[in-house]
């Protein structure tokens, strides 16, 4: 554990809580991609199956359980509790375009050809593209509420801090996880364009982020 890892995990948690609170307080999930949230719930479920096989630390177990619970709570709020506020017509990203390549790739490139390893690899690859339905939705509608952009900012910050964590671990422990690092870098790239818009539009302006 290092400061970048810890800060990254905290940002991840903050992002998830921001989204959950936004939906709960406004009693609405307008502008939120339910598909991205379902993908994140699948990511956590397939990655944290090792909760049943290995024990790493109390921190690790607690965070995994919290992420799982919060991601399912988010999906519940979107599709059940506040489903009448959900803009399904704008959440039109075709999931098969993500799932088919990700499933294929996780069978081809993994550390061991065992169910748990393939599912872990699948979750890593899927996480790197899971935000795409949300970014697609913002591009389609041309705007995002500022609270949604704060959510995306913390999610992007979490990814950037994980890269700093890997640089740190490489230099101090000689640790290098090719699958996680490559997909992590790919994932972070998706946020760069958004980061630019966030700084120029949201932080310097006010209210909604509108695309040029």
């Amino acid at each position: 554990m290092n400061i970048f890892r810890l800060a990254g995990d905290v940002c991840h948690l903050v992002a998830i809580i921001i989204l959950l609170l936004k939906i709960w307080r406004s009693r609405s999930c307008a502008g939120i991609s339910g598909k991205s949230q379902v993908l994140f719930a699948i990511v956590f479920t397939t990655r944290y199956l090792d909760l049943f096989t290995v024990f790493i630390s109390p921190y690790n177990t607690i965070m995994k359980v919290v992420f799982l619970a919060l991601s399912y709570a988010t999906v519940y709020l979107i599709y059940m509790r506040f489903r009448n506020t959900f803009n399904s017509e704008n959440d039109s990203f075709r999931l098969e375009f993500l799932l088919v390549p990700v499933i294929g790739l996780s069978f081809l490139e993994n550390y061991a050809f065992t169910p748990l390893e393939i599912l872990w690899t699948f979750s890593i690859f899927l996480e790197s593209v899971a935000i795409m339905p949300q970014l697609f939705m913002i591009t389609k509608t041309g705007e995002a509420e500022s609270i949604t952009t704060h959510y995306l900012f913390f999610l992007g910050l979490y990814r950037a801090l994980y890269i700093a964590n890997w640089v740190w671990r490489y230099h101090t422990e000689g640790f290098f996880d090719q699958i996680a690092v490559v997909s992590g870098v790919v994932q972070t790239i998706f946020y760069i364009d958004f980061f630019y818009l966030y700084v120029t539009k949201v932080l310097r302006g006010r209210g909604k982020m509108t695309l040029p």
Binding site: V54, I56, S57, M63, F67, Y162, N165, G174, F175, F176
Partner: peptide, 10 residues
């Protein structure tokens, strides 16, 4: 270090 040891990350 590769593979298995990565699993401490969330």
């Amino acid at each position: 270090i590769e593979g298995r040891e990565t699993k401490d990350e969330l």
